[in-house]
């Protein structure tokens, strides 16, 4: 297998949509959750793409679709140029070896009744990557690569700390030598002092192995430090996508701006509460609308401080504005404001 050219995406989603029927009470028949709607994005070899959003934005559904744990309702997924749906049907193990996932909660993602050695060894065994006699040694190497010791082989998950468990989960994903790893909030369940350790580990692994990450997070400040490109999602849609540099300079979509402004940050000029800080947009009002009946037009218009009649009538397309793609009718105008 030859390495793909730098420009070729390893994993590419085209117009991905996912709808779930709502199982529900009387009169609930025929209702549908629109979890993903027309999501297109791609990750190049060895790169990190961050997907940012709050609960209900569809990022977990996206992770499930990208890793073949869920079949999308529409759209297509390409793995190194090949149709993933087809590959999952005909040669599922080829797909599984190349795309792996690391979950948020390291307490839930390891089987409590299996030792660390068993859990990581399972990955090798299923894919026939190490004969029974070599397996233990190979697992030891993988544990060493994620900063754990040989002695952890025979431990159970409850004997490890949260950070150590997340390292085990990373070792399990790496065992099959994937080309892309979907990291679903991999550090948000960890203590602050441990988060940086795990991020540094992921970065070291990327340098060494050239693996691509799709990094899902709710933390804009974090992803600006680790991603080459960032996609911001709201209610199942990508609302802004561009390089970390461009988005770090300024955000154009009103939701991205509100998300960034809402995150507390140490060292903002006055350490007054955000709503008293004159230079900062006020916090968004209300909750994220239900994805069962997403608002017509622009899905953000119910909470948008810049909303106008056109926004509730006509859904904006994702279009190029300056150096990024934005899903907003008035992006240029908003950019002009600030």
């Amino acid at each position: 297998m030859t390495a793909p050219a730098a420009a070729t995406p390893v994993l590419e989603a085209q117009d991905l949509a996912k709808r779930f029927p709502v199982a529900g009470g009387i009169g609930g028949r025929g209702r549908v959750v629109h979890a993903l709607n027309g999501v297109s994005l791609s990750v190049a070899a060895g790169e990190t793409l961050a997907v940012v959003g709050e609960s209900g934005c569809g990022k977990s559904t996206l992770a499930n679709c990208l890793t073949g744990l869920m079949a999308p309702s529409a759209g297509s997924l390409l793995l190194q140029g090949e149709d993933a749906a087809l590959m999952l049907r005909r040669e599922p193990m080829r797909f599984r070896r190349r795309v792996q996932i690391v979950f948020q909660d390291p307490y839930a993602s390891l089987n409590p009744r299996r030792t660390i050695g068993d859990t990581v060894g399972d990955a090798l065994r299923i894919h026939g990557l190490a004969a029974r006699r070599e397996r233990r040694g190979r697992v030891g190497q993988l544990l060493a690569e994620v900063g754990l010791a040989e002695e952890h082989l025979d431990r159970y998950p409850h004997e490890l700390s949260g950070g150590q468990r997340q390292r085990v989960a990373i070792a399990r994903a790496l065992a099959v030598e994937p080309v892309v790893v979907v990291c679903d909030e991999p550090v948000s369940a960890l203590d602050v002092s441990i988060q940086a350790q795990v991020i540094n580990l992921l970065r070291d692994i990327q340098r060494r192995r050239g693996v691509a990450y799709l990094f899902i997070s709710h933390n804009l400040a974090l992803v600006r430090h680790i991603a080459r490109r960032i996609a911001v999602m709201y209610l199942g849609e990508v609302v802004e996508i561009g390089t970390a540099e461009a988005l770090g300079r300024r955000m154009l979509h009103p939701y991205s701006r509100a998300l960034f402004a809402a995150a507390p940050a140490i060292g903002r000029p006055s350490h007054d509460p955000p709503h008293l800080d004159p230079g900062r947009p006020p916090p968004l009002s209300g909750d994220v609308p239900s994805p069962i009946d997403p608002p017509p037009g622009c899905r953000f218009h119910t909470r948008c401080p810049h909303a106008r009649p056109r926004c509730s009538a006509e859904a904006p397309a994702l279009r190029l504005v300056d150096d990024r793609l934005v899903r907003c009718h008035f992006a240029e105008e908003i950019a002009g404001h600030g």
Binding site: D191, S193, I194, Q197
Partner: peptide, 22 residues
């Protein structure tokens, strides 16, 4: 250390971390 970790302060090309665990 906590402060640097919370701000995602860079330490060379890596993030500043507190080694070890509680």
């Amino acid at each position: 250390g906590l402060l640097r970790a919370a701000q995602w302060a860079a330490d060379g090309d890596r993030l500043a971390e507190i080694p070890g665990t509680v």
